[in-house]
Design a protein around this nucleic acid. Structure first.
Length: 841
RNA sequence: GCCCGGGUGGCGAAACCGGCAGACGCAACGGACUUAAAAUCCGUUUUCUCGCAAGAGGAGUGCGGGUUCAAGUCCCGCCCCGGGCACCA
């Protein structure tokens, strides 16, 4: 792992259009010099690894994780927002006494490095390591609370050897396998993509590049072996994960219960197996439709039909996003349902998917909209076999609900549910079908025809076939001396010393697998490695996992809802079944933060609206950047990055700085006491109200924008009473103010803590204790409504009872003017808040 | 089409269990300080009507209904924006 300098550099180049904030100070007091303060503390903490943690059974643990970044080279304020949310929480949890593990690392393999290498003639490794160094320096400058001793970089052999190790374990268990299949090919990436990485028919990284279908030999991971559990366990995540992420995963897994049944072809007697969720409608099936790729097309159909099928396949391979028109062709064949009812024609149809179910369906136009559309187009009969339990079936459209079976032989009169049950039972009994569950999710294709990734530890031997690299030979190291041209096939094919090996089984000359792994493998288990990052003998020590896992809070973008987050859940279950870990889910809570918007658009390099972390640090300071990131919107919502708002955040911090520094002497020398006058009382009351509010925000909904608004209100209150607050109260107040500021503006808090004569990092101090007695108001304003309209406000002592309050209200002159001469029908009284008088006449 | 979010001042937003709509910040305007400006501090700022004024009255949370003493919040029906799913049989 690379060792880096402290990262506290201030020599960051600025773009010319950026005007540094000028600090001109005619006032006799100390100005808020953010650079001086932040660099001082950054430097002072640089050698310490302040947030290093170890297992400690005596303390409650808290595993806080932000999704590991791709080392693109620069942090922008979108990253800053993400990390600031986590950092504020980490600091709060530290102060509440938790043993907080908060790690950071680099998702360092991937295409951008390779593309950069082609463009700039730099080696991907060199480019990646330089980027990591740059970004780590930026992290340090921001002072995020990471335990850097746990840093992980996925492009290092020390890390990716365990990708290979997991792959071998899965290969042994049959969870990793190779097959020729139609796969998604992105011409832009020049590689294969997994299904999860295709969005609207296009590559997830190249949103306007349609993926093509190619038939290739590929490695797959059997995520479908866990489909049932991945779906069922979503229930356990409920409440902790955002509902929409769980919905997306449910949709993606797509479990359907139904039946498989064999139709029998006339003459040949061959069987066509179809999958249906509505076997109760089988007496309404008026044709069977095969996917154009279906094996029987090639076997039994004439040249004309085969040509038509090929045309459909080709058309589908190049289809862009959007719908395709239903097309079909009659095969000349007829088939009969196992439940009888006569032979129906067999068609091929372009809308029947080869990779789902059995690749063949029975069409029931009366009870399925798609089938109706197809059959109407080709003049195929429509036969209703289900009627509604009550009322009439609708005219002209498919009746798709469950109902009562009719014209269905011995099943006539049964409910759909009962019919399905009995028909499945009979199918199993007589061997022409079975009860069946089909999933939408498919196995995870992980082969990539690219260089900058984990080599797949396999060897192809002419005699022995595909042979695993023995565990003792791991890691299969990615060769460094290599030509990357961006042309042709995987660059590894041109490295003879990598490709040419001897077979581990027979010793004969053999070829090494040259595809590399999907980089989503790297990020599927990195959070386990954090718990034991230096382990050279195993991916990790299971005892350490048992202490730290599961992740208590995971924070990241919603764009990974069905990519990283489903792969990670799969890996966790796979690792559990290898006996390596005890937990079945990686994270109990997930938080998806909103995007950062600038000029109405998502911040991105291609739009050119990126605000860099360096620019913010230099011009306003990292505390200001963090404060604004939390203040401008609640964390789950999108945030508009406006510099005028940033200025406001800066002004607030400067205001805090001036207040604390000019009262620091008083606070340091006086003995801390309780309130001695009305100003003290008001100040301490506001302090404890604010403390209560912020604590609530941390413990429940993370609305740090209101936490910070509370701090601003507190400062406004302190400014108002500044001259009257007694030294003793000031000595009580100021340390707590600084502690409350700590999670949001850590450098400033540190500086002010020192100004107050205290030592030790603020984040290791105890969170202030809430005193309800100090927070309580002496008097409250009660709103008086007459017929629901606010007519007066009266101030009464806090705790005034119902009767007393009502008497006071009725005695009020303004109230009388609205009730005079009218009959009071009733009074609704909410003590401490409101009285509503309902009058008549 | 279906399923989630969301729609509140000039702007970002707040109002957590139905109880003062607009906290806090930005922008704008005014005042203090200054030779002046910046910075700072203090104030005004949803809107309309009446009033010289203190003040008084009305309207107002996408639109239309409803429940309630009371609705941004709950219910019914729409409109718009964002996201997800969508030939998965």
């Amino acid at each position: 792992m690379t060792t880096l300098r402290s990262g506290c550099s201030s020599s960051i180049s600025l773009e010319p259009r950026v005007r540094p904030l000028r600090i001109v100070n005619p006032m006799p007091e100390k100005p808020y010099d953010h650079n001086q303060i932040e660099l001082k503390w950054c430097e002072r903490f640089s050698g310490a690894n302040l947030f290093e943690v170890a297992e400690d059974p005596a303390r409650p643990k808290y595993y806080l994780l932000e999704m590991l970044p791709y080392p693109s080279g620069t942090l922008h304020v979108g990253h800053i927002r993400n990390y600031t949310i986590g950092d504020a929480l980490a600091r709060y949890k530290w102060m509440r006494g938790f043993n907080v593990i908060h790690p950071m690392g680099w998702d360092a393999f991937g295409l951008p490095a390779e593309n950069a290498a082609i463009a700039n003639k730099r080696h991907p490794r060199e480019w990646t390591l330089a980027n990591i160094e740059k970004m780590k320096a930026q992290h340090r400058r921001y002072g995020f609370s990471y335990d850097w001793s746990r840093e992980v970089s996925t492009c290092e052999p020390e890390y990716y050897r365990w990708n290979q190790w997991f792959f071998l374990k899965m290969f042994e268990k049959g969870l990793a396998y190779r097959k020729k299949a139609l796969v998604n090919w992105c011409p832009e990436c020049a590689t294969v993509l997994a299904n999860e990485q295709v969005v609207d028919g296009c590559c997830w990284r190249h949103e306007s590049t349609p993926v093509e279908q190619r038939a290739l030999e590929q490695w797959f991971l059997k995520i479908t072996a866990y489909a049932d559990e991945l779906l069922a366990a979503i229930g356990e995540l409920e409440g902790g994960w955002p509902e929409r992420v769980l919905t997306m995963q449910r949709n993606w897994i797509g479990r359907s219960e139904g039946a498989e049944v064999d139709f029998t072809l006339a003459e040949s007697g061959r069987k066509v197996r179809v999958f249906t969720t509505r076997v109760d409608t089988i007496f309404g099936a008026t044709c069977v439709i095969l996917a154009p790729e279906h094996a029987l097309v090639e076997e039994l159909c004439g040249a004309e039909v085969r040509a038509e099928a090929k045309r459909m396949i080709d058309a589908r391979a190049t289809k862009g996003p959007g719908d395709i028109e239903k097309e079909g062709a009659f095969t000349g064949l007829y088939a009969e349902s196992p439940f009888g009812g006569g032979a129906v024609p067999v068609w091929i149809g372009n809308f029947v998917l080869t990779g789902y179910g059995t690749g063949a369906i029975m069409a029931v136009p009366a009870h399925d909209e798609r089938d109706l559309e197809f059959c109407t187009k080709y003049g195929i009969a429509v036969k209703a076999v289900i009627r509604p339990v009550e009322g009439e079936a609708p005219e002209g459209v498919a009746f798709t609900d469950d109902g009562i079976m009719m014209d269905s032989g011995e099943y006539t009169g049964l409910t759909s549910a009962e019919g399905r049950k009995r028909m499945c039972e009979r199918a199993e009994r007589e061997g022409f079908g079975k009860y069946a569950i089909t999933f939408r999710i498919k196995d995870w294709g992980i082969s990539r025809q690219r260089y900058w990734g984990t080599p797949i530890p396999m060897i192809h031997c002419a005699a022995c076939g595909t042979v695993a690299v023995p565990e003792k030979d791991l890691p299969v190291v990615l060769p460094i001396n290599i030509q990357i041209t961006g042309r042709g096939r995987s660059p590894l094919e041109n490295v003879p010393e990598f490709v040419n090996v001897s077979c581990p089984q027979c010793g004969a000359a053999a070829r090494r697998e040259t595809d590399t792994m999907d980089t989503f493998i790297d990020s599927s288990w990195y959070f386990y490695r954090y718990c034991d990052a230096q382990n050279a003998n195993a991916p990790f020590d299971s005892a350490k996992i048992a202490y730290w896992f599961p992740i208590d809070q995971y924070i990241g973008g919603v764009e990974h809802a069905i990519l990283h987050l489903i792969y990670s859940r799969f890996f966790t279950k796979m690792m559990r079944d290898l006996g390596l870990i005890a937990n079945s889910e990686p994270a109990t809570r997930l938080f998806t933060q909103g995007m950062v918007i600038k000029d109405g658009k998502k911040m991105s390099k291609s739009v050119g609206n990126v605000v860099s972390a360096d620019e913010m640090a230099e011009r306003y300071g990292t505390d200001t950047a963090r404060l604004f990131a939390l203040f401008a919107a609640p964390p789950e919502k999108d945030l508009d990055w406006q510099f005028s708002g940033v200025e406001g955040a800066y002004r607030f911090l400067a205001r805090v700085y001036r207040f604390v520094t000019r009262n620091a002497d008083t606070a340091r020398t006086a003995r801390a006491t309780g309130p001695a006058n009305e100003a003290d009382k008001a100040a301490l009351r506001k302090l404890h109200q604010t403390l209560h509010r912020i604590t609530e925000d941390f413990d429940s909904r993370w609305h740090f924008n209101t936490s910070i608004a509370g701090l601003m209100e507190l400062m406004n209150e302190l400014y108002e009473h500044e001259s009257e607050i007694t030294p003793g109260a000031m000595a009580t107040l100021l340390p707590d103010v600084v502690l409350l500021l700590g999670p949001f503006a850590p450098y400033l808090a540190e500086e002010l803590w020192e100004e107050l004569g205290r030592t030790g990092p603020v984040c290791k101090q105890a969170w202030p204790a809430f005193d309800a007695a100090l927070a309580v108001e002496d008097s409250v304003e009660v709103v008086v409504q007459v017929n629901g309209k606010v007519r007066a406000r009266i101030t009464v002592p806090n705790g005034t009872g119902k009767e007393e309050l009502e008497a006071a209200v009725l005695a009020d002159g303004r109230v009388k003017s609205h009730t005079e001469g009218k009959q009071i029908a009733k009074m609704i009284t909410v003590p401490g808040k409101l009285v509503n008088i309902v009058v008549k006449g």
